[in-house]
């Protein structure tokens, strides 16, 4: 009689516990799910909120906002062509410098350097990525700008300034501040990102492929150029796009060295970029039109970064698929 009741009680306890576990399982799962959806909502929400903030500039001005070069806070006229072109040009310069150098670093670290040297150099280059961008800005302004203004810019103006076609881009007063300087600082900042991705994908090339080429008598360079690079092409482009995404939105380093002059000029004259304009003028933007124009620029920057980073993600996804196949 007693044993019977005891068993019953125990069964009830077990059932209760199972029920409690089930409830906790459901609760924990919902908790993690809502946290995950929160991440998604953040991105969508950020885009909507910024579009709303910049609506005045984006909708009312329409295409004029991005095709006209006239930025005049005193008269409350805000057409954003100059900062948009500045962002694109500085990022382009950054890539022109950073891509070959990153490629060189990746080749050096995977094919050329002796094994004991690879990890320390790779770590050192990656440390570059950890330095806060404001430090890059200060170094750019106090060290790089005077040096460029003294030695490099006068030479560029004398040599390239007289060339046909590209000559007009290289004219101006050599003060060392401008789009070219900003592009160079950006290049140094994105090199660690691009080179570490290139290095990683170069390491995924099957040894058999490279050894076959060596067995046929290829030189190291031919193996890199004809075997490694074609095999990893998609992921390499993905890495370049990731670097571009970084360069487009970089703010503090650019603000220091670009000169913050909101008009189109040559590469050697003070200019501006979207992020630099926002960072530089936001504190003084009291008029609604001004804030709206800055938020509109921010929205455009967000959309372009989103597209560029999506492309990078999709191209790098190919890499993990290959990895899975090996």
């Amino acid at each position: 009689m007693n044993a019977e009741a005891d068993r019953e009680l125990r069964l009830i306890a077990v059932a209760k516990r199972a029920q409690g576990d089930q409830r906790m399982d459901f609760f924990f799962r919902s908790l993690t799910a809502s946290a995950a959806w929160f991440v998604l909502i953040t991105l969508v929400g950020a885009m909507l909120v910024m579009f709303d903030g910049g609506r005045e500039a984006l909708v009312e001005q329409g295409s004029k906002f991005i095709t006209t070069d006239y930025w005049d806070p005193a008269n409350l006229i805000f057409h954003g062509l100059a900062p948009i072109v500045g962002t694109l040009l500085t990022s382009l310069i950054a890539l022109l410098i950073a891509v070959p150098i990153s490629f060189g670093i990746a080749v050096f670290l995977t094919e050329v350097a002796p094994a004991w040297l690879r990890t320390p150099i790779a770590t050192a280059i990656e440390l570059l990525a950890g330095i806060p961008s404001i430090i890059y800005g200060m170094w750019g302004l106090f060290v790089l700008v005077p040096w460029l203004g003294e030695y490099v810019y006068p030479w560029l103006i004398d040599e390239l300034g007289t060339w046909p076609v590209i000559g007009p881009w290289f004219q101006g007063i050599p003060i060392g501040i401008g789009l070219l300087t900003a592009g160079f600082v950006l290049a140094v900042m994105v090199i660690p990102f691009i080179s570490s991705i290139m290095r990683e994908v170069f390491l995924t090339v099957p040894g058999r492929l490279k050894e076959s080429a060596y067995a046929l008598g290829s030189t190291r360079w031919e193996v890199v150029w004809d075997i490694v690079l074609p095999y990893t092409r998609t992921a390499v482009i993905g890495g370049v796009f990731l670097g571009l995404g970084r360069a487009l939105g970089e703010t503090m380093a650019v603000t220091f060295v670009i000169g913050n002059a909101n008009r189109l000029g040559t590469l050697l004259e003070p200019g501006s970029s979207i992020s630099a304009t926002i960072a530089n003028e936001f504190a003084e933007a009291f008029a609604d039109e001004h804030r709206s124009a800055l938020l509109g620029l921010g929205f455009l920057l967000f959309v372009v970064s989103f597209i560029v980073l999506s492309i990078a993600k999709l191209m790098l996804k190919g890499m993990s698929r290959w990895e899975g196949k090996r």
């Binding site: 709303d52 992020s275 800055l294 980073l309």
Partner: peptide, 21 residues
Amino acid sequence: FVNDILLSAPSIVLGLFIYTL
């Protein structure tokens, strides 16, 4: 995917987002 985009998104954009919000 969205998280990876957020990971590389310009930090200035997040500042503007919180400003408006």
